[in-house]
């Protein structure tokens, strides 16, 4: 309860003092730098995409034609590419992240843990353009030769693995995204697992549960909320990631069915074409894609925050 300075107005009979001015000044700065910034972001995106919104209406979201020269602008290939590559990144990244989290929280010897924990977090500090550079010259050739071609040969009857096999592909982009979200998801999950009271874990083990059973029966229910929030944060990051994806996804605005084919994402098309967009409508279409990207990633982030906040309250109350 005694965590805060009260607001100035509560004080009985205090004259307008420097303190009131101080609080007012901070309040104005806080409102400007956060609330006004957020509002301005949204307003600018809305205002500048208005020409495209009025020109194409709802069709913009459903049209698959992206041909700036012919004046055709449809956002579906980018929305589709963003969603598929991000979800595939989760499919690859989440199990690995959870495995890492459990390893670092429960299995690893203290020394390994002390070294490995910060090393994996180091991944998060590497700029995305550099992950993209590595993606172009190391990962994409590797994927083509050792992943895409075998998949095509042995599982090519499945539409998602049909050939021809490219290096710059949705699969490569998703692998890059998975690498980028592993540090976030694994570190939040690790903390959530560590936050489970020792007694509860020991209680389960004392009943003869194996470690796996203990994790499933005691830790998972307890840490579920935080882990889900972490996955949502990872999804938000994957949806908005620009450079690394742009550099490896192949940048082809088609509705791909095979993951071994190139695709395109919302962030990537903005990065690639923004400076080329000399016509107003073209630019407005790109900004509208930005608006959609902004709204989707804000939605994911708000959900993630609501989940983690609720989880924190529950955990704090236990």
């Amino acid at each position: 309860m005694r965590q805060s300075l009260p607001s100035g107005k509560r004080l009985r009979g205090e004259p307008a003092s420097p303190d009131i001015l101080f609080q007012a000044a901070l309040a104005v700065l806080a409102a400007l730098s956060v609330l006004a910034l957020a509002a301005l972001l949204l307003l600018v995106l809305l205002r500048d995409s208005l020409p495209a919104i009025t020109a194409f209406g709802f069709d913009f979201l459903l049209s698959t034609e992206w041909n700036p020269v012919a004046g055709e602008f449809g956002a579906l290939p980018f929305i589709y590419g963003t969603i598929v590559s991000s979800l595939l990144a989760l499919v690859i990244g989440v199990p690995l992240s959870l495995g890492i989290a459990v390893y670092l929280a429960e299995i690893a010897p203290a020394k390994v843990r002390a070294v490995l924990t910060p090393v994996i977090e180091l991944l998060a500090a590497i700029p995305s353009v550099i992950i993209g550079l590595w993606g172009i010259f190391v990962l994409a050739p590797f994927v083509r030769e050792h992943l895409a071609e075998p998949l095509m040969e042995h599982a090519g009857f499945l539409p998602i693995f049909s050939g021809p096999a490219y290096g710059y592909s949705v699969l490569t982009a998703s692998l890059v995204l998975a690498i980028m979200i592993i540090p976030i998801i694994s570190s939040i999950s690790r903390e959530a697992i560590l936050a489970v009271p020792r007694l509860q874990k020991e209680g389960a083990l004392a009943l003869g549960a194996t470690r796996f059973e203990m994790l499933m029966s005691v830790v998972l229910p307890y840490a579920r909320g935080a882990i889900f929030g972490a996955v949502m944060l990872g999804l938000g990051r994957a949806i908005g990631e620009t450079m690394a994806v742009t550099m490896v996804i192949g940048n082809s605005p088609k509705l791909f069915t095979s993951l071994l084919h190139p695709g395109y994402t919302m962030a990537a098309v903005i990065a690639n074409e923004f400076t080329e967009a000399t016509e107003d409508l073209y630019l407005a279409a790109l900004i509208e894609i930005g608006l959609i990207l902004f709204l989707i990633s804000m939605l994911v982030n708000v959900l993630a925050r609501l989940i983690t906040r609720r989880y924190r309250r529950v955990a704090g109350g236990v």
Binding site: A30, A31, V34, L35, L37, A38, L40, L41, V44, L45, R47, D48, L233, G236, R237, I239, G240, E241, T242, A267, I270, A271, F274, I287, G290, L293, F294, S297, M298, V300, N301, V302, A304, R305
Partner: peptide, 22 residues
Amino acid sequence: VSFTADVLTGVPSIITGIFAYA
């Protein structure tokens, strides 16, 4: 402000580029 700041940490970086451009 607290909630908005939390959510703003998730704004895709390319969007801040569009913002400063505009």
